[in-house]
Design a protein around this nucleic acid. Structure first.
Lengths: 132, 132
DNA sequence: CTGGGTGCAAACTCTTTGCATTCGG
DNA sequence: CCGAATGCAAAGAGTTTGCACCCAG
C-alpha cells in the first residue's frame, strides 16, 4: 500500500509542469517519449489520473475532444477556442457561488469546473480577414 | 441544403423533453427504442448533436463518463453526485462573470458550462449510516 | 424527382485493464 | 525480498462515419 517514487512519476509530473499550455494526455505522452521513449502510454495515463485524483493537477474536459490537464491547482477556469482548440486560463471569483450552492442545495461540494467556449482574439482576427 | 422534418427528429426531441432527468445519449437511445425500436443509435446521436449545436439542447460533460443532454436551454448549471452519478440543476447568477470575461480577455464567448461535483444529500445520508 | 436523412455495421478516438515483468524501499 | 508500478497489447466505452437505401418537400 506504500506509494513508490518512480522515475516515470517524476518525468510525467515534470513534463506536465514544463508544458505551459494545457496538454491532452496524448500530448504529454508524446512529450515524455521525446526524451524517454520507453515510457508507455498506459503509464502516463495512470500517472495523470493519479495526479488529477490527488489534486496535484486539474483535468479539463473540453467538448468534443480529449481531456486536457493543467498542473496549476489554484482555483481558476478555462476558455476554449472553438476554432484553434487552444485552452487559456481565466482567474475569476467563483468561490462565492460555491458557497451559495453549498448553502442552498444541501450538496457537499468537492470540486467544480467552469469552462467557456468562444473565439480567441487571434481567431477573431483571422475570421474578419476571411470575411473582408 | 434544406433541413427536413423527419419523424425521427420529432421523436428524439420529444423524448429528450419528456425525460426530466439529464440523460446520456445512450439513455435517450434506449428510451426512444422503447417506443420505436427501428430508430438507430447513429440517428439519435446525430440528432442530439444537431440539437446541441443549434442551441436547442445543452451538452453536459461529466468527468469520467458519457455526455449528458439537457433540453432546458435557459442559463443554468449542474451538480453531479460522485456517488450515484445523478445530475441536478442549479440556477445561479453567472452572467456577470461572462461579461467580465468578455471585457477583460478579448475572447468572443459563445457559451460556457459550469459544473460542480460533490455528494447529493441522499448519498451523504447513506454515507453517514455506513459510517455509524 | 432529388438530395437530406436514416439504418447498419464497421471504424475511430480516447482511455482503461489483465498479465507478466521489473525494481524501489 | 515483496508487492507497487510498469510495459505491452488487447479490450472497452462512447461516438462517428461510409454507404446504400429511403422518403420529405
Amino acid at each position: 500500500m506504500q506509494e513508490r517514487n518512480t522515475l516515470q512519476k517524476r518525468i510525467v509530473h515534470e513534463t506536465l509542469v514544463a508544458m505551459a499550455s494545457h496538454p491532452t494526455a496524448d500530448e504529454v505522452v508524446a512529450e515524455v517519449q521525446n526524451t524517454y521513449p520507453s515510457v508507455s502510454r498506459a503509464t502516463v495515463y495512470r500517472i495523470l489520473n493519479k495526479l488529477a485524483d490527488s489534486g496535484e493537477a486539474l483535468r479539463i474536459r473540453i467538448n468534443n475532444g480529449a481531456d486536457h490537464f493543467d498542473h496549476q491547482t489554484f482555483p481558476h477556469y478555462h476558455v476554449h477556442c472553438n476554432e484553434c482548440g487552444k485552452v487559456a486560463d481565466v482567474k475569476m471569483p467563483v468561490e462565492s457561488l460555491v458557497e451559495l450552492l453549498k448553502d442552498t442545495s444541501g450538496y457537499q461540494i468537492s470540486g467544480y469546473s467552469l469552462q467557456f467556449d468562444g473565439l480567441c482574439p487571434e481567431c477573431q482576427k483571422l475570421e474578419e480577414e476571411r470575411g473582408a
